[in-house]
């Protein structure tokens, strides 16, 4: 009884990221199939999205690391109505806040390849990557079958 999943492969130009010097690493990483987040050298905790200082302790010893891509759903919502193309054609779909296995970081993303009926808070998920434009990619999540 699951709803058919829409095709998310094409995104209009206005949705494409416009990376800054701070977060370019994230978008390029995604294009290379990696979830890159920041890790603080002082306290060892992680953060996403990219910032100048550690959001946990304020230190400036920030470096990008490649995360496992694994995490747990912290909260989610099902979008059933959205009048804006291309989302108008994609509903219904899940948007989730994912607590990464790397301590300190959460990532908010869509789950376009997952049936909405199978999503729950606490479910295990894995990052996947969806190219946008020539240089970057979006990070999505899917239920982790492993």
């Amino acid at each position: 009884m699951s709803s058919p999943l829409a095709d998310w492969s094409e995104s209009p130009a206005w949705l494409a990221p416009i990376p800054t010097s701070d977060d370019r690493e994230f978008w390029v990483g995604a294009r290379n199939g990696e979830l890159r987040i920041q890790r603080c050298g002082a306290c060892g905790l992680h953060q996403h999205y990219a910032r100048m200082l550690c959001s946990h302790c304020g230190a400036d010893e920030i470096a990008f690391v490649v995360a496992s891509g694994l995490g747990t759903i912290y909260s989610f919502t099902v979008i059933r109505k959205n009048g804006v193309p291309p989302f108008r054609e994609r509903v219904p779909f899940v948007v989730a806040s994912v607590q990464l296995d790397e301590p300190g970081a959460r990532v908010l993303a869509a789950m376009p390849t997952t049936a909405i009926e199978s999503v729950a808070i606490g479910a295990r998920v894995r990052a996947q990557f969806r190219p946008v434009g020539d240089e970057f990619a979006f990070v999505d999540f899917a239920l982790d079958s492993a």
Partner: peptide, 21 residues
């Protein structure tokens, strides 16, 4: 820019993630 690409665009959907948790 961190949310709209995932279709999270309306006040009701923004509120829902907080309320659900």
């Amino acid at each position: 820019s961190w949310y709209a690409p995932y279709g999270l665009m309306t006040p009701a959907s923004w509120v829902a993630l907080h309320a659900h948790r």
